[in-house]
């Protein structure tokens, strides 16, 4: 493995982005969506997640460590590119650029979001509930920050899914790559709807 270190890390980066991080993202937004059905419904769903067995282990190995690895190597990947969308404004090149932009935006958003929610819970300052999120999102600046953060995260996931399919060699033909592009657009729209609708349920 040692002589193929970059190869291994990059493949791991691609895999982690989808499994488990992508799956976790969809699940997270799915649970959030209970807010649409009212405070009680949201609290029940959040409580269920909070009471999952082995929660600390799940949080560390399914969420925290994969995201940390993905983020650190991701920043490095951003730094290796010399973007040239002005010279070569092809669709895929623009998506390549946006993948890097949304990666950084998502990193800032997640850092803020984790600090404001999970870390505060760990410090015993707050308890996650409908009313707590309602309070957080009552500030219009924070609310729109969340909207942008969610859209950026979902874009990064959907477009990353396309990259995953190529990196792992599933989609080889131009036709399959094109069809997966359409599929990822649907994923982007559907998952964004889930996340944004939940956010609007708090205001």
């Amino acid at each position: 493995m040692a002589e193929h270190r970059e190869f291994f890390y990059r493949r791991l980066h691609s895999l982690l982005g989808v499994i488990p991080i992508g799956l976790f993202l969809v699940q997270h937004l799915f649970i959030n969506h209970f807010a649409v059905y009212g405070a009680e419904s949201f609290n029940k769903a959040a409580q269920f997640m909070f009471e999952l067995p082995f929660r600390p282990l799940l949080e560390i190995f399914v969420i925290f460590l994969p995201i940390l690895f993905h983020a650190i190597l991701g920043v490095y990947i951003v730094l290796t590119a010399r973007n040239n969308t002005r010279k070569y404004s092809f669709g895929r090149n623009i998506l390549f650029f946006l993948q890097r932009v949304t990666g950084i935006v998502t990193l800032i958003f997640i850092a803020w979001h984790v600090w404001e929610t999970r870390v505060q819970v760990a410090l015993g300052n707050v308890e996650v509930s409908y009313s707590f999120m309602e309070g957080v999102l009552s500030d219009p600046f924070i609310f729109w920050f969340y909207v942008i953060g969610v859209i950026s995260t979902v874009f990064h996931f959907a477009n990353g899914l396309w990259g995953f399919m190529v990196t792992w060699g599933f989609t080889q033909s131009p036709r399959s790559q094109k069809i997966v592009t359409y599929f990822t657009i649907l994923v982007f729209l559907a998952v964004s709807y889930l996340g944004i609708r939940a956010l609007f349920a708090f205001v």
């Binding site: 002589e3 193929h4 970059e6 190869f7 990059r10 290796t80 895929r92 090149n93 390549f96």
Partner: peptide, 18 residues
């Protein structure tokens, strides 16, 4: 699979266009 090899590709797909 060596460093600087295929893992350096970021799928911008400019290559196939030009």
């Amino acid at each position: 699979m060596q460093d600087g090899g295929i893992s350096g590709c970021g799928n911008s797909q400019n290559c196939v266009q030009v």
